[in-house]
């Protein structure tokens, strides 16, 4: 174990060293090959040439890594989705036909749809409310910090935490799960939340909402603070009450930020895998697309073709957000 620590430290040093060596070395080499001293025509030409090459030296490793780990896989996955389980024989649209007709996939799609509907909306709404409320009180920053905290916890860690909340014992036993203890304390019947079809999906969504609300709160809180005071003062003079000011004056002004938060959480939801995988692994009708993808990749009989098809569908669902993001980014960088 000690050896592993040493090996770890050594590899970190080597890795970082190599990266530094690349950047220093390539720049040094460039300046060596194209000397830029002096004032003759050659030096001028060299300066121009070096200026044209240098950006690509800086970008090289990044382009390589992005290309290998993100761009190439997109193409390869599209290709794989037209091949059989082992990825060797072309099968046309067979995987897509399977996708459309498979009942497990249909259930997963339906659940995904529910997740997309509920989680971004609930997280954004709760985040907005928390931001608005905490901005008005003295201990708001402590409160924010505590609501934000689950952001740091892994999905698996959060799942363990909530397992203790949802735990179920028979009605004749002492409940050790918080939720059932509260319900029996109020005179209700305990419920096996994780196996309670279809409401167990919401039990799982609560975990993600719990994690994402802090994210929404932090961003929306900053946006709320950026609202010009005059607009609010004018509304107060006109006799608007607190709720009117909030929903008619403040929310419309931060609408673009709300959209950013909403879409960011939407992407997280599409990729959500750990919570379902760790809590139910898709049992009791809780499957989602990302878990189906993992299932076809490693569990049961691996089928790369089907797994790739599921991945492509997730990708297609993300594309509208991607286009929207790029358009926004371009608008921002215009004129720079």
């Amino acid at each position: 174990m000690i050896q592993q620590i040493y090996t770890g430290l050594a590899t970190i040093a080597v890795g970082v060293g190599l990266a530094l060596l690349y950047f220093y070395g390539s720049n040094w080499l460039l300046d060596r090959l194209l000397p830029q001293g002096g004032a003759d025509a050659r030096a001028t030409r060299n300066i121009r040439l070096a200026g044209a090459i240098r950006p690509w030296l800086f970008l090289g490793p990044a382009i390589f890594a992005l290309g290998l780990y993100l761009v190439y896989p997109v193409i390869a996955t599209i290709q794989l989705s037209f091949f059989d389980a082992a990825g060797s024989t072309y099968v046309g649209f067979a995987n897509y036909t399977w996708f459309v007709h498979d009942s497990n996939i249909r259930a997963a799609l339906l659940n995904n749809f529910l997740w997309l509907l509920v989680v971004p909306a609930a997280s954004t709404f709760l985040g907005l409310v928390t931001a608005a409320l905490t901005d008005r009180i003295a201990w708001g920053n402590i409160a924010k910090s505590l609501v934000f905290m689950p952001m740091a916890i892994s999905f698996v860690g959060a799942t363990v935490i909530w397992k203790f909340v949802y735990d179920y014992r028979g009605a004749d036993q002492t409940q050790i799960g918080l939720l059932n203890a509260i319900i029996t304390g109020l005179g209700g019947r305990p419920e096996a939340w994780i196996a309670w079809i279809p409401w167990n999906n919401f039990a799982l969504m609560v975990i993600l909402i719990w994690i994402q609300t802090g994210f929404a709160m932090v961003i929306l809180s900053a946006a709320l603070r950026g609202i010009p005071e005059e607009t609010i003062e004018a509304a107060v003079l006109d006799g608007a009450n607190g709720l009117q000011i909030f929903f008619r004056i403040m929310v419309p002004q931060i609408f673009s930020t709300i959209a950013v938060v909403w879409t960011t959480i939407t992407i997280t939801v599409l990729k959500v895998f750990d919570i379902v995988y760790a809590m139910t692994n898709g049992q009791w009708d809780t499957d989602v697309l990302a878990n189906q993808m993992y299932f076809w990749m490693f569990q049961g009989t691996p089928d790369f073709g089907r797994s790739a098809t599921v991945a492509i569908v997730i990708m297609i669902l993300v594309i509208p957000i991607m286009v929207w993001n790029i358009r926004n980014a371009r608008r921002e960088t215009e004129g720079h």
């Binding site: 997109v74 993808m293 990749m297 991945a311 990708m315 957000i321 991607m322 993001n325």
Partner: peptide, 13 residues
């Protein structure tokens, strides 16, 4: 654009 590419896509390739 790559910001939102689901990394699931990369796993198999």
């Amino acid at each position: 654009g790559l910001l939102v590419v689901p990394l699931q896509l990369s796993l198999i390739p």
